[in-house]
Every structure is written in C-alpha cells, then in structure tokens.
C-alpha cells in the first residue's frame, strides 16, 4: 500500500503557498478586486472555510497567535475544528482573546473589539461576487467590474425600498472599496460593515470553492452602498446583552422556552466574557450576583 504523506508546515506545500502569497500581494495592491487563484482541494468541505484556511495557511508563521471564530464565537463546532486543524498541522499558538491574536480567521462576524495595527482578519467567503445574484455569469460580472458598471446593484437595492420600504439586505451588504470596486464583505451582518472602514487591521478574504482572494488594506475607505434619501443604517437592538450589559454590540437571540421566552446575548463570546471579567453584568447575571452577596 502507498505510504501516506506527512504534511508540510501549515499543510500546504511551498509551491501552493507561493501561488497564494502572490495572489494576496496583488489583492492588496488592488483593494476590493477579486484575484483568481488556483484554490487547492483541502481536507475539509468546500463551503466550510477552505478559502480562509488556505489564506491563513499561506500567511501563518511559527510566531503567530491564531484565533478562529464562527458566528462571533470561538466555541462553535466549525471554529473548533479549524482551530484544531492549525494546531495539528502548524503547532501554532491559539487564543480566544481578540487583542492577543495576530491572525483572526472568521466566518460571519467581525469582532466587537477594535482591531489594531499589525493584526490580520481572514474572512471565509462563500460567494465572493457581490453581483452574482443579479447576474449568474462570471463572464458578465467580470465585465461589469472592468467597466465599473454597478448600476444593477443600485437598481436591486432600490427595488427593495420600493417593495418593502427598506433596503432588505441585512447581511453580505455590498460595499465600495477605495472608491472603485464593489465588494462582498462575506455574509457578516451589515452591523459589522462600519468596522471595515479605515480599519487598522489588514483584511483578507478567501473563497476556496470559487477560487478568489481579495483584500482591504488598513486605513482604506469602505463605504456601504446607499441612497441619499435612504442612507445606510446598521441594526439596533432594543436591549443590551443579558449577560454583560453591553450596548452597541451584535446580539444573538436565545430561545428559553416554548412560551416566547427569550434573551439576547453578545454574539462575540470573547468580548462578552471579557466584559463580565471586568465586572459588567447584564439583567440575567445581576440577580445571581445579589444572591451571592
């Protein structure tokens, strides 16, 4: 029987890393433009973060500290699985603390804590083409980007308003990067869009199945598309986090019983824990604290 292989540091072979690295450099040089790359078959399913994993594997070094989140949480199963993958193939240090991480791989959220200079945020992207649901053909959407022809996107958003009275896009809300390319921010809630604007961190996007890499350098304009009379707005929650009392954060709705009982808690688990460690308590924690006193 064939000898099964031992794997290189961070799984990918060096030639593959070089190919991805070259794509990353071009992506940074053309903010928001999707660079085609020869995405490899990864030992995890397409659609489960193969693009993000390839980007992370190509940039990761032995001194990095890696954080992996899915839905804002470090302990969701796919985040656990990807983190374990890098521990296994790169023996890299991992953390759940946003501020301690040098590389953060994410699916669907941007951490609440402001990212800082030198950090890299790697997004897992399912469909990188913001125009894909308006025009399914790659040959057509490529032309639209080339000609900076984004009228279709505005028409779509405006039809939303005409039909619903609101722009009905709540996640994967399209943005314009550095005044040129319209970009899909990956399926993050639009709540997170403002965090991309002038971020101090480098933002890299990997779409494995669709074979695209794109980037937003630090200190770069990222503007959510909107209209003068219907300006872009983010979600607002009526109550603070039930555990840490935070306002102005994105909340998950947790169903408590079958009688309509529910609570809202931070989607960013690290942020929530950190606040609680610093003595903040929300409505659901406060009574317990009293009881202990």
């Amino acid at each position: 029987m064939t000898d099964l292989a031992t794997y290189n540091f961070a799984y990918l072979d060096e030639q593959t890393k070089r190919m991805i690295r070259r794509a990353i450099l071009k992506a940074i040089a053309i903010p928001g433009y999707q660079v085609p790359f020869a995405s490899r078959e990864m030992p995890m399913p397409y659609g489960w973060g193969t693009g993000g994993v390839q980007v992370t594997a190509a940039i990761l070094g032995p001194d990095d500290v890696l954080k992996v989140i899915d839905q804002g949480a470090d302990d969701t199963t796919n985040a656990v699985s990807i983190r374990a993958f890098f521990q296994k193939v790169a023996n890299v240090a991992v953390t759940t603390h946003t501020r301690d991480a040098t590389i953060i791989q994410t699916r669907h959220r941007i951490p609440e804590e402001k990212l800082t200079e030198g950090q890299v945020l790697v997004y897992q992207v399912p469909i990188p083409e913001p125009l894909r649901f308006l025009e399914p053909r790659e040959t057509e959407t490529r032309k639209m980007h080339a000609l900076e022809e984004y009228g279709l996107m505005h028409v779509k958003l405006y039809e939303d308003i005409a039909r619903n009275g609101h722009i009905a896009t709540t996640y994967a809300y399209p943005v314009k990067v550095a005044g040129r390319y319209v970009m899909d921010p990956s399926p993050t809630p639009k709540f997170d869009n403002p965090k991309m604007h002038m971020s101090e961190a480098l933002q890299l996007f990997g779409a494995g199945r669709e074979k695209r890499i794109y980037a937003v350098p630090p200190h770069t304009e990222v503007v959510s598309l909107d209209f003068e009379d219907y300006p872009f707005e983010i979600q607002k929650f009526e109550q603070p986090c039930a555990l840490c009392g935070a306002h102005d954060v994105y909340l998950d709705e947790v169903v408590l019983d079958d009688k309509g009982g529910r609570m809202f808690v931070c989607s960013d688990t690290d942020h929530c824990e950190d606040r609680r460690d610093h003595g903040h308590a929300g409505a659901m924690l406060a009574p317990k604290k009293e009881a202990a006193e």
Binding site: H108, P189, R209, D252
Partner: peptide, 18 residues
C-alpha cells in the same frame, strides 16, 4: 456537496439580521 451541506453550519447571526 460542500456548498449544499454548508447550509447546516450555524447561520444564526445572519438569521438574526433577517
């Protein structure tokens, strides 16, 4: 299969937005 089956991964953040 990867992309069809990825729908079973948590999507609750986006669902909350909807």
């Amino acid at each position: 299969t990867g992309f069809v089956e990825h729908l079973k991964l948590p999507h609750y953040v986006d669902f909350q937005a909807e």
